[in-house]
Design a protein around this nucleic acid. Structure first.
Length: 282
DNA sequence: CTCGTCCCCTGGGAGC
DNA sequence: TGCTCCCAGGGGACGA
């Protein structure tokens, strides 16, 4: 599910519950998600106050007053929901598995539940001062909404890459937080072919692309992210940026660019769908 | 190194 | 209805 805009939407939704709050009780309802939970996971959470809730790439980072940071990745299907009035312990509609895997009960009485049917998400506890050097974060590239991101920085990140543009933009070591949806959308916005060799862009093209990436991400955050099936804002609301997709999941539809007249195509790159307009993206 | 392929897992939708 | 097959927002482990 979640790319940068969805994770940022979740961060904003969770902040009122997390920041400044103390975790009175935590619960992991299984030993692992994609990876095992860290040693003594629950014990290291209980009694801790959350000092800040940040985002880096597609990770949520809750800084605890113990000097550790709870790093959370939502994988493909992870979501959080906030229950001001906890609904109950093991509510399984129609007996189906709930996929509620982690529960945070705060002193305030608020409950935050992490749900993840596919369990591609994971959580870890990392010493805060060493976070940037941790293997999960050491190689992650620049934030596209950060102050250091511009056409020159993008050009530098793509320089020398012989990979298709699509694959290079998905590579978290070059740029952080982009996924399949927003890469497709940004490339269409910038009228660049996903098949272009990443290192071959001219300066005018990296300028257009940098602008498109920022614009698409900001618009998606504004819309509360995109809900294809799983993504919810933490209050249960759907995101609605999917209604603004120009190409993603729109194979056969008309290209929205003025006077283009092209049709959206689907191709497979690196095992994943790429949506683009062959008429105006070059 | 850098690239492409496969795989982890569950559920939803299409097609028969 | 109920199969079966295909596909899905991420990214780590491989092998070439």
């Amino acid at each position: 599910m979640p790319e940068l805009p969805e994770v940022e939407t979740v961060r904003r939704g969770l902040s009122p519950s997390f920041v400044g709050a103390r975790i009175a009780r935590a619960e992991a309802r299984r030993p692992n998600l994609r990876f095992p939970f860290p040693e003594r996971f629950v014990a290291r959470l209980e009694g801790r106050r959350v000092q800040d809730l940040r985002r880096r790439a597609k990770y949520l980072l809750a800084d605890l007053d113990s000097g550790e940071t709870l790093a959370m990745h939502l994988g493909m299907s992870g979501s959080f929901r906030v229950e001001e009035q906890p609904v109950g312990q093991f509510y399984h509609p129609r007996g189906k598995p709930s996929h509620d895997h982690v529960v945070f009960d705060f002193e305030s009485g608020a409950r935050v539940v992490y749900n993840d049917p596919r369990r591609f998400g994971f959580m870890d506890l990392i010493e805060t001062v060493r976070l940037d050097k941790h293997p999960l974060f050491a190689d992650i590239g620049m934030e596209p909404l950060g102050p250091e991101f511009n056409a020159a920085a993008l050009a530098a990140a793509l320089e020398g890459s012989r990979a298709p543009l699509k694959a290079a933009l998905l590579d978290q070591r070059r740029i952080a937080g982009l996924g399949n949806i927003y890469v497709c959308e940004a490339l269409h916005d910038a009228r660049l072919s996903p098949m272009r060799e990443a290192g071959s862009l001219k300066r005018s093209e990296t300028t257009k692309l940098a602008r498109a990436i920022k614009q698409v991400l900001e618009a998606a955050i504004e819309a509360g992210g995109s809900t294809l099936r799983d993504h919810r804002q933490t209050d249960g609301q759907l995101g609605y940026f999917q209604h603004n997709f120009a190409v993603y999941d729109r194979e056969g539809a008309a290209c929205g660019h003025t006077r283009c007249g092209g049709i959206v195509s689907r191709a497979v790159q690196a095992g994943r769908s790429t949506f683009y307009c062959g008429a105006c993206q070059s």
